[in-house]
Design a protein around this nucleic acid. Sequence first.
DNA 1: CTGAAAGCGCTTACAG
DNA 2: CTGAAAGCGCTTACAG
Lengths: 331, 331
Amino acid sequence: MATLKDVAKLAHVDISTVSRALNNTSYVHPDTKERIYAAAKELGYRPNAMARALRQGRGQVLGVVVPRLHMTIFSEILQGIEAQAQQQGYMTTVCVTEEDPKVEKDRLNRLRDGGVDGIVIAATGRNGRLLRDIQASGVPVVQLVRRQELELSSVVADYESSGREAVKYLASKGCRQIGLIAGSQHLAPFHGRYEGYRKAIEELGLEEITSSSDRLVNSFGYGYECACQLLDENPDLDAIIACIDVQGLGAIRAAAERGLRIPEQLKIMSLTGHRVGRMLETTMTSMEMPAFQMGEAAARLVIEEIEADPKHKPARRHINFATNLVEREST
Amino acid sequence: MATLKDVAKLAHVDISTVSRALNNTSYVHPDTKERIYAAAKELGYRPNAMARALRQGRGQVLGVVVPRLHMTIFSEILQGIEAQAQQQGYMTTVCVTEEDPKVEKDRLNRLRDGGVDGIVIAATGRNGRLLRDIQASGVPVVQLVRRQELELSSVVADYESSGREAVKYLASKGCRQIGLIAGSQHLAPFHGRYEGYRKAIEELGLEEITSSSDRLVNSFGYGYECACQLLDENPDLDAIIACIDVQGLGAIRAAAERGLRIPEQLKIMSLTGHRVGRMLETTMTSMEMPAFQMGEAAARLVIEEIEADPKHKPARRHINFATNLVEREST
DNA sequence: CTGAAAGCGCTTACAG
DNA sequence: CTGAAAGCGCTTACAG
């Protein structure tokens, strides 16, 4: 690979002049500039990003940490992050934690050492201290989907409202025994949805019916197991709310195995729609969440912090996306 | 952040000694070593990866280029790549092309300039020259899923055999009018599956029935549109083979909308199962493909090439995974 | 066993 | 308008 030195030699100037010409960072005589451009082109010069990164202390790289990708909303969000990052000249490095705090800790340290300029994370909620340390050390951190630490910026959806609206909607359809597949209560989104559910159930004078499982929360199996439990313990159940789409798939499957007709005998809906629901044999009603846009927003936020004047760093910010009820065949 | 210099000062030694001690790269007196470790610990020293990368000409980063993530097999493969890469000390940078050759070209150039050590790509098939250039310039390239360039290493599945076995299996179930949702023929996997389908159909003396669409090939919509076409033009169709799972979902949906009973009136299966099929209301028979393992293999392959002695670089390699028929309710 | 020096490829004050 | 120099934080021959 040709370096600045090679270009400088060919153009008969100093490397500093080449640098200035190529980066348009100060006036260079048009003739000189032309010679430099020609030389750079002839040699197929491409700047070495690692050298620039070392010198400028910034590598134009975003770190993204998620619990999982396959069959989750995070794969769609990641696409949003990547698209926005590329547009602003950043690369995207991804780490998958499988919801394991130890793995998460290790990955965060590696990202930090690897010199990423900012981090977007859907955290396990068990490494708050480390995240705050990283932010304090000058690497901006933006929380994605899960707002676990109030001191850090975040991009989330309005989970509580999703839960409340879902209950009201199902009640308006005549449901009286509405079960919730609850998810891990120490994670903000699941807790928020539960709170919305609980309040609406109370307002309507109905009975709380929830279930949870030990399995990985972002999984089909989680939804399936919880749905089985709900159906077995509540013979008159007339609706199931799943927190996320794959849980909803699990619930539909559990209902199908019991020969229950959807939506006549059992209504099912999800609180985190991300384009899966509309593909199904029985399409699933859901509170659609703008996943791609949330990814874009998170990338924008973290890049804004990275590039802000160090003297007046922006205060932490929280972006809250509304979810949108989309009625389909399952309710 | 503390640097080598700070540690050296605190331990009263030269930075080179610190480097040697911390990297265990040559004998250092135990006492000195202890002092150095203590100093490093006290200062919370963490090596600067960018500096090391510049010096060593290797950043311990893999670039991954895929057409899409959400609802595709690539999100699962990416998890396999990331897991293996981390295990071997590499970070994973991801780029999404949306199947656009121009975007792909841009991303490949950015990856190259950004100093990734190797690239794993599920290519559009339109940038073969660039890929060969990159490989020739010393950055190993491994093709993933799509073996478009014979000169480059690859990790694929046995597509032709999948197509053939699927036809035989359906025929053994009594099907006589077997439609194929074909996919883009310029992409190796789709071409391979079609070839397998064609040969088996011919052997069995049946009639070829295929369809394709202009939509993004890795999409629900593609499968849905093709299935509608097949069903409308062939009233006696008794089976549909989809190349990939989301296309199969589209086909199931199209069948459901026409009130067709699966599998009694119409059998549906997919040639690229990746754990989606078993989640459905009517679970889908598929040729399961070991996506995660394929990702791991691709990462291993590219890292092997990166770390090989430059004098005898390994020859290009091709790894071909078998697919595995899993019968479910849709057939 | 350890130090001094060179250098990876850039950028950026500092002169002139 | 351009050059010479310093330096980002490391690693690694080369001496001794």
